[in-house]
Amino acid sequence: MKKVCMSACAAAVVLLAAACGSEPGWQLVWEEEFEGGTLDEAVWSRIPRGKPDWQNTQSADDRCYALRDGMLVLRGIVNDDRTADTAAYLTGGVWTRGKHAFEGGRIEVRARLHGARGAWPAIWLLPFETEKYMWPQGGEIDIMERLNHDSIAYQTVHSHYTYTLGIENDPRHGSTMAIDPDAFNVYGVDLWPDSVVFRINGRRHFAYPRIETDREGQFPFDIPQYLLIDMQLGGQWVGRVDPAELPVEMEVDWVRHYRWQ
């Protein structure tokens, strides 16, 4: 699909945007096709190990990363040397933290998620100004999370309002939508000053609006964001990992950023 789309759109950026899934009125302003032999280090970094569930298996191990056939491949593997690294599993993830910001517009990522028990791939956004916004004050936008072998994806926002104050349904802060679990799907979000609108395969799915409220931190999302794409294994939400189902891969075909014209 990618090569057909690119050949049809090679003449101009506007044609590329129109032919590859954006609606009229949206202009492509940035893209990552993962066509080279190495990851663009001016934009991307490997996510380091951290304490949270989503980060406690992240690794720089080369076996967790590949650039293959114009795609970024992120893997979850069994750690076969726990003397060098005590984590039972190792996972690959990349982010644009400190390097590339997304401010407003539409962000889309085309990816295929291979299933495994305990697999938790995610595509998400956090505030670019990391020192200014401590979680959850600056919010979190989960463009896609998928668990195990599920045929649904979760799309959610988190903030001081939803997490600290616990107000998750006024307005509703997340939903799920069906995906083809064996194919590539396009996961997207539109970032507006008054709403966050989620999409899957070009279809509007769910919107989280700014509302009038005397509670603080309800809509912190109208700020520059950085993008995270990561394979994750295990944790309180997804549950235990079955090592017999590893390695597991997350294939990322492209990332695109559009602005409304």
Rank of each mutant, 00 (worst) to 15 (best):
R106M: 10
I107Y: 04
R110V: 00
R110Q: 04
A111Q: 00
A111P: 00
R112P: 01
R112S: 01
R112A: 08
L113K: 10
G115F: 09
G115I: 05
R117E: 05
R117F: 01
G118W: 12
W120G: 06
W120F: 09
P121Y: 08
I123S: 00
L125M: 15
F128I: 09
M134P: 01
M134V: 09
M134T: 11
W135Q: 05
W135N: 01
Q137P: 01
Q137D: 15
E140T: 01
I141D: 03
D142E: 08
R146K: 15
N148W: 13
N148S: 11
N148M: 03
D150C: 00
S151V: 05
I152A: 08
Q155M: 15
Q155R: 10
V157Q: 04
H158Q: 05
H158I: 10
H158T: 09
H160A: 08
T162K: 00
T162M: 06
L165N: 11
D170Y: 14
H173S: 14
H173G: 02
G174N: 11
M177T: 14
A178C: 11
I179L: 03
D180N: 14
P181V: 05
N185F: 03
N185D: 09
N185Q: 09
Y187N: 06
Y187V: 00
G188Y: 13
V189M: 10
D190H: 05
D190E: 15
L191D: 03
W192M: 14
V196H: 07
V196C: 04
R199V: 00
R203D: 01
T213V: 07
D214L: 10
D214F: 10
D214P: 01
Q218I: 04
F221W: 14
D222I: 01
P224R: 15
Y226E: 07
L227I: 08
L228M: 13
I229C: 00
D230I: 00
L233E: 02
L233V: 02
G234N: 08
